[in-house]
Design a protein around this nucleic acid. Structure first.
Lengths: 337, 337
DNA sequence: GTGAAAGCGCTAACAT
DNA sequence: ATGTTAGCGCTTTCAC
């Protein structure tokens, strides 16, 4: 039972392949109604399904894009990916998502893999370590958009959030609520967004003339966070508020809180930089700095498709504002547990 | 600047296309060392990247599979998809994920789309409404695996969980803790797993000779759940325990709880059928019936790849057991809030 | 050991 | 209004 091809349809309908091709591509300008009907019937009878691979080979476009996420464990990455996929589907494109797992080697492998598959463009949450590869794509004018991290020296459209300002705003809010001893917990300061978040934190303290205490600043691998938290909370001056630099750090903080029976928010106020699902319906009540994932993803996809369609190129930096979502338990005490 | 093709490499290296092809496919059995080196150098010099689309056309395989998820809003669907993708990547395959959004029309569209793209096989969380299409694929012997829902009359390898038994176990547990007034909330009973969950609930009540009260059983569209919950909780005999049939129902329940200041678990014990992220670190403390998403995804992928490689076919039903994860707050009172 | 040639299923000039 | 033809970039017999 051989695969049904366009030639079979053509023969069945008594026309040529090109006519069938016209039909399939809905170019029926000069096509007889009966011809149309014959082709339609032949397709139906044979159960013909077009082969997009063959078409792609000829047309040199696959209607697929690749998304390379630095680390899919971050909630916001999956949210942005989803937004990109949705936008793509609306425009008859498909997306292949790959997880670089914060590994530049994997990132490179996936970029090459996806390009070998002839994806029409790439949206990358860059690890930042493959500068030469990025530059090469830029030089080739290959359609690409960066998300989450700006890479210096690579001129590519880039989507980021206002990490510094948003953190500044959140810390200022804590200070205005009376907090003076504010800790911050992040993964290692190896990438730009994390550095900016810490910078925003420091700036806010400075603006209120509060001394920056290095012992309140934890920046270490996820697996070490728990032990360092223990150290901080045995200091004579325990923090009364804490900023988690991203969701993964937050989970460590939560584990610490649960294990050590810290009361939220009486003993400790918490602000998290990242989208925490169900933060609004769950306790402890935590304030979050939400990234506009949907808008970011949509913009990234939009820019990429424009590049693919040669409508524009450019290499601008698009900075999206985060939203501080303040949740304070106030009157909710003793409702839950 | 034309794209570099294999012919260019061949010319540059002073060999023929077929030799280059051999080289790329690592078939160097009878290949001179100097030939190898010449080709390697030419590839490097020209920056050649193979075109997998052309290869796919010739080989009639794309090393891609499609995943069609009934509704990506369910946490467990994304977990299973992730597991499938991981398994695929380990086997040099890629996956394209599509969200049917519980819409049979979209499901059909995606199935046809993915097959036109020549994916080597499909993993489908079936809506259940495209029986003819499923049967056709079965007849064509097209590699396919169903996940989450068994479709009667379609003989395809299928991965499900023990919905009925797991719910039975959870409800039994509630009864053993002294509950007699147990409600259940699910989306409409249109698909098999939901029906089975309700059946497990009923069976458990029967086993303990507890009367089944229709007024405790809410099965309605997500958007109506809230209002029906209000009705239930104004009954003279309020439930003391509640089973949420899936994660989306649970979120509605949580909203209700928050709005109406119901105390968990004093006023109401809650069990959720589904994987709720952070259930372990968050309050209120809820018991969950966890589906083994990783194992399910892995098995689905494994079965599909075997079909693709013609190692086996079969159309078995694989039932995975869920795990009841009991979380009771006990001594944790007043630690949080 | 390496090359020549045919062909995968489709599209797009160009002819008619 | 439809047909002819020449590829797209690769793999794969089968010769040499």
């Amino acid at each position: 039972m051989r695969r049904v091809t366009m030639a079979d349809v053509a023969k069945e309908a008594g026309v040529s392949k090109s006519t069938v091709s016209q039909f399939l591509n809905k170019r029926y300008e000069h096509m007889g109604d009966e011809t149309k009907e014959k082709i339609r019937a032949a397709i139906e009878k044979l159960g013909y399904r077009p082969n997009y691979i063959a078409r792609s080979l000829k047309q040199k476009r696959t209607a697929m894009i690749g998304i390379i996420v630095a680390n899919i464990m971050h909630r916001v990455s999956t949210e942005i990916s989803r937004a990109i996929e949705d936008y793509c589907h609306e425009h008859d494109m498909h997306a292949i998502v790959c997880n670089a797992d914060d590994d530049p080697v994997k990132e490179r492998k996936y970029i090459e893999m996806l390009r070998a598959r002839q994806v029409d463009g790439l949206i990358v949450f860059p690890t930042g370590e493959n500068i030469e590869l990025y530059k090469q794509m830029e030089k080739e004018n290959y359609p690409i958009v960066f998300v989450d991290r700006k890479i210096d020296g690579v001129n590519v459209n880039t989507i980021v959030v206002n990490n510094k300002e948003a953190t500044h705003q959140a810390v200022s809010h804590l200070i205005q609520k009376g907090h003076r001893k504010i800790a911050i917990v992040t993964p290692p300061l190896t990438i730009y967004p994390r550095i900016e978040r810490v910078n925003g934190y420091k700036q806010a303290l400075r603006d209120y003339s509060i001394k920056i205490k290095p012992e309140y600043m934890i920046s270490t691998d996820i697996k070490n966070i728990l032990s360092q938290l223990k150290t901080v909370f045995t200091l004579p001056e325990k923090p009364t508020a804490l900023v988690a630099g991203n969701d993964l750090s937050f989970f460590e903080v939560m584990t610490f809180i649960k294990e050590n029976r810290v009361c939220i928010p009486q003993d400790l106020a918490i602000v998290v930089f990242d989208n925490i699902p169900f933060a609004n319906i769950s306790n402890p009540t935590i304030t979050t700095i939400a990234q506009p994932a949907y808008e970011m993803g949509k913009k990234a996809a939009e820019l990429l498709l424009k590049q693919i369609n040669k409508e524009r190129v450019g290499s601008e930096l698009y900075t999206f504002p985060c939203k501080l979502i303040i949740r304070e338990s106030s009157s909710e005490k003793n409702i839950i547990n």
